[in-house]
Amino acid sequence: MTTSTKRLGWIVAIAGGVIASLITFPAAVPWMIAGWLLYSTVLIARGRPGWLPLLVCASIVLVKNVDWPSAFYLLAGAMLAVGIWRGAGSRKQPSVSSNRLGVAVSMIALWGAWLALSWMWWTSAHSSEMPQLQGERPVVCVGDSLTSFGYPDELAKLLTIPVINQGTDGITTSDALKALPELIAANPQIVVIELGGHDFLKGKTRAATKANLQKIVDACHDIGAEVVVMEVPRGFIIDPFGGLEREFTRDNDLELVSDGTIRNLVLWSPYAPPGLWLDAARHLSDDGLHPNARGNRYMAECVTEALVRLYGEKIRTTP
Rank of each mutant, 00 (worst) to 15 (best):
M32C: 11
T168A: 07
L158R: 14
A293Y: 02
S258A: 15
I33E: 10
S148P: 10
V96C: 00
L256M: 02
G170E: 06
F149T: 14
S4D: 08
D287Q: 02
K6Y: 13
P291V: 11
D259V: 03
V105G: 12
E245M: 13
D279P: 10
C220Q: 03
V82K: 07
W68L: 15
S145N: 09
Y39A: 15
V163N: 07
N212R: 05
A81G: 03
V140N: 09
L180Q: 08
W277N: 11
I23M: 05
V228L: 06
L62M: 09
T147N: 03
G112V: 13
L267W: 08
L80S: 12
V227W: 06
K178N: 14
M299D: 03
V227E: 00
W111P: 06
L22V: 03
G77M: 13
A88T: 09
D253V: 06
A179T: 02
P291G: 09
I108L: 15
P53T: 01
C220H: 02
V308E: 11
N212A: 05
C302K: 14
K204Y: 13
L201Y: 10
A211N: 06
W85M: 13
C302E: 13
N99K: 03
T24D: 02
N292D: 04
Y271W: 04
T318W: 07
D222Q: 13
I11P: 00
V227L: 04
R309G: 08
G295V: 07
D199M: 09
W122S: 13
R234P: 06
I193A: 08
A306P: 01
